[in-house]
C-alpha cells in the first residue's frame, strides 16, 4: 500500500474508533476523549489532502483545526467538571433531567 493509502486508512480507522468510543462510553471525560480522537483523525485527513493536492492553505487549515479542537476540549471538560463535580463515577446517562 502506498504511503498515502496508509495515512488514509489510519485516518478512517481512527475516526471509526473514535465514533465507537463516543457511542459506547458513558463517562463524560471518556466521551470527550473519543471525540478528540475523531477530530484528530479528521485533521489527519486534511493534512493528507494538503499533501496529496499540494495545497498550502489546507496545511494552515489543519493548524487552525487543532486550535478549534483544543477550545472544544477546554469547554467540554469545564462543563463536565461543573456537572459531575460530586460524583465519583459519573454516568452521562444519569443526567437526563432535561427531556420530553
Amino acid at each position: 500500500m502506498s504511503s498515502e493509502g496508509l495515512v488514509l486508512a489510519t485516518a478512517v480507522g481512527l475516526f471509526a474508533i473514535g465514533s465507537v468510543g463516543a457511542l459506547l462510553h458513558r463517562h463524560p471525560v471518556a466521551m470527550l476523549m473519543s471525540i478528540e480522537v475523531m477530530l484528530n483523525a479528521a485533521n489527519l485527513l486534511i493534512v493528507l489532502g494538503a499533501r496529496v493536492r499540494g495545497l498550502a492553505d489546507a496545511e494552515s487549515a489543519a493548524l487552525i483545526v487543532l486550535v478549534l479542537a483544543a477550545a472544544e476540549a477546554v469547554i467540554g471538560l469545564g462543563l463536565a467538571l461543573a456537572l459531575f463535580r460530586r460524583k465519583l463515577v459519573p454516568d452521562i446517562d444519569e443526567a437526563a433531567e432535561v427531556r420530553g
Binding site: 465514533s19 463516543a22 457511542l23 459506547l24 458513558r26 466521551m31 452521562i92 446517562d93 443526567a95 437526563a96 433531567e97 432535561v98 427531556r99 420530553g100
Partner: peptide, 17 residues
C-alpha cells in the same frame, strides 16, 4: 414522539450517527 427525546445523551449520539 416527545418521549423519544429522552434526555439520554448516548441515545442522541446513536441517533445522529
Amino acid at each position: 414522539l416527545s418521549r423519544i427525546q429522552s434526555g439520554v445523551l448516548t441515545r442522541y449520539v446513536f441517533g445522529s450517527v
